[in-house]
Amino acid sequence: MGFPSSPEMQLLYFGLFSVVYILTLMGNTAIVYAVPWDRHLHTPMYIFLGNFSLLEICYVTTTIPTMLANFLSTSKSISFVSCFTQFYFFSFGCYEGFFLCITAFERYLAISHPLHYPQIMTKQLYTGLVIFGWSGGVILSLTPIVLISQLPFCGPNTINHFLCDPVPPMTLSCSEDTITQLIYSTFNAIFMIGTFLFILYSYALVILTVLWMPSWAGKHKAFVTCASHLAVVILFYGSIMVMYISPGSGHPVKIQKFITLFYSVITPFAIL
């Protein structure tokens, strides 16, 4: 269904989000190329940032081009296979949760244990963390798509969203599979709450360390270093809580669309 509106508004949406999408690609691509080319950026923090920027490119490319095409099209259709393919790659949110945890852990070591940081954050460790972030996301993303793709679909076939998010296709199933819904909900709750608590705990320790720093310059530098990461954490988990944790019936679908879209296009700028 996308964003039902007049043809003029559809053109306005197309122009606005085309510009934002291009700027997002340019900014994150610059980071992806800068990290390997500049030797001064060959540190764990920037390596994680480069991977996160690559992830953001994949994340917005999963949804925005299709949405832009739908703004100019009268028939907003998507095949079953394409829908579930988009659904799978939209699950890059799992990768994002892992990389936010990894970055929080790295900042905790750098600020709370600066003397031991070089011995702990070795090349083997941060390489392993990057591999874990990508491979963990691949494995976790497969679980919901396998479960939901096995549901029977016989109509209706109208998705009240601008993308194939997991919940709208599930509501189109001919049979109400409570087991699949329970597994999916439990899976999401454990992942979201677990990663969020890990990040909160890491930054609670960081804040305690910063407060004990004797110099104001040291405190300022530590807070500035963590500010962009905290902004992304707030955007990511704030959007998730409104979309998936708050009672769904109390939020109009139109608001949920804008929340999902807002996060997709704003998060890369927080990183930049």
Rank of each mutant, 00 (worst) to 15 (best):
G133L: 02
L49C: 09
N160H: 05
G50W: 04
A222S: 13
Y244N: 13
S79L: 06
F92A: 11
T29W: 13
H251F: 13
N157I: 08
N157T: 14
T63D: 05
L151D: 04
G15E: 08
L23Y: 00
P168N: 00
S141K: 06
S73A: 15
W37A: 15
F191L: 01
V60F: 10
V265G: 08
Y33A: 12
L129W: 01
P144G: 04
K76A: 03
I148F: 00
F262M: 12
P44A: 00
V130H: 05
L200R: 00
L208H: 08
V35C: 00
I78Q: 12
C94G: 01
S135F: 14
F258W: 15
P168A: 08
V265C: 10
F262D: 09
C164A: 08
V130P: 03
F14S: 10
L261F: 12
E106C: 02
F14L: 13
F162T: 05
T61S: 15
L140P: 02
T267E: 13
R39E: 12
T178L: 11
L151N: 00
Y244T: 13
S5Y: 01
S53K: 00
Y13D: 02
L151T: 07
A227K: 06
L125K: 13
Y184M: 05
I193G: 07
S249Y: 09
V210A: 00
I255D: 08
A270K: 02
S149N: 01
I159P: 04
S135C: 10
S264C: 14
P114K: 11
P168G: 08
T43M: 09
P65M: 01
F71L: 12
F223C: 11
N51F: 03
I148W: 03
L54M: 14
G2K: 09
F258R: 06
M213E: 07
H251I: 15
F162D: 00
I271Q: 06
L261H: 05
P268A: 11
Q86V: 02
I102Y: 00
L25A: 09
S91C: 10
M45L: 14
T63K: 04
